[in-house]
């Protein structure tokens, strides 16, 4: 198991945001995480990446306990993430944005500034943003920002990459390009993907296993085909039968 979460609980005041969640992700898997708004999906992601202190429970990555570790430590161990609302470094160029990921990610000795920018341009090329390398990040469009975030997340050489609603706000053409890109990422870099997504079509198409959260609890886990036919999940989340 690459990532193991046991009895994870997080409270914000009186709100039980994540309630006793237990899940695990194997290597080279594409796992989707779905659930209604406010179900605690992003909170789980923030707990894994170290932004929130865990109230109770444990998170284990490659056999190492990472609950309450600093976000930078978590990143250097090999977990990187993207944000729901893209958060680039707005005043840096696209190349420098990815360069930060290359320089700060996994420690590689003897890496000069120039070398890292060369590496960064490789990642930009991979997501198809090389022509925009000198554009400031604040001037990029939403889709380009998502690509940039993906490139930056890849640049830290992760084992596990957590995508937070990549598809939100994309048109169908862009969405299909994004799915293809995530597939390509998995093929080329052999990363495990943990993917929060609202668009059921994408979840059906791209993921191998789906975990459902509801009021901070994981209520089901299985292949997407089974999940969408589960009457309980249809009732609480999907609303109608999809496939």
């Amino acid at each position: 198991m690459l990532l193991k979460i046991e009895n994870l609980t997080k409270r914000f005041g009186g709100v039980l945001a994540v309630n006793d969640v237990t899940l695990s992700i194997a290597e080279d898997e594409i796992v989707g995480l779905i659930g209604p708004n406010g179900a605690g999906k992003t909170t789980v992601m923030n707990l894994i990446s170290g932004y929130y202190k865990v109230d109770s429970g444990r998170i284990e990555f490659k056999g190492i306990d990472i609950q309450n570790a600093r976000p930078s430590t978590v990143c250097r161990l090999g977990i990187s993430r993207t944000f729901q609302i893209p958060r680039p470094f707005p005043d840096l160029t696209a190349l420098a944005n990815v360069g930060v990921g290359v320089l700060c990610g996994k420690e590689r000795p003897d890496k000069s500034y120039g070398d890292s920018l060369l590496d960064a341009s490789h990642f930009l090329e991979f997501v198809g943003l090389f022509s925009k390398r000198n554009v400031l990040a604040k001037d990029l469009s939403l889709f380009e920002l998502r690509l940039l975030e993906l490139a930056r997340a890849l640049a830290t050489t992760p084992k596990l990459i957590m995508l937070d609603e990549v598809m939100a706000g994309l048109n169908p053409g862009e969405a299909s390009r994004a799915i293809k890109l995530v597939r390509k990422v998995v093929e080329e870099y052999r990363v495990t993907v943990f993917w929060i997504e609202h668009v059921m079509k994408v979840v059906m198409e791209a993921t191998e296993r789906v975990i459902v959260l509801h009021y901070g609890k994981n209520i089901a886990s299985g292949p997407p085909k089974e999940i969408v036919n589960n009457p309980e999940i249809i009732e609480i989340y999907l609303g109608e039968k999809i496939a």
Binding site: R81, F89, L92, V100, G101, L103, C104
Partner: peptide, 25 residues
């Protein structure tokens, strides 16, 4: 103009994201 300058720029732009990228801010 060196990597420290890039770190400085990243910290000035968004500390939280810089830390996500593995920077010990």
């Amino acid at each position: 103009r060196s990597r420290i300058g890039l770190y400085a720029a990243a910290i000035n732009d968004d500390e939280v994201v810089a830390e996500t990228c593995g920077l010990k801010i």
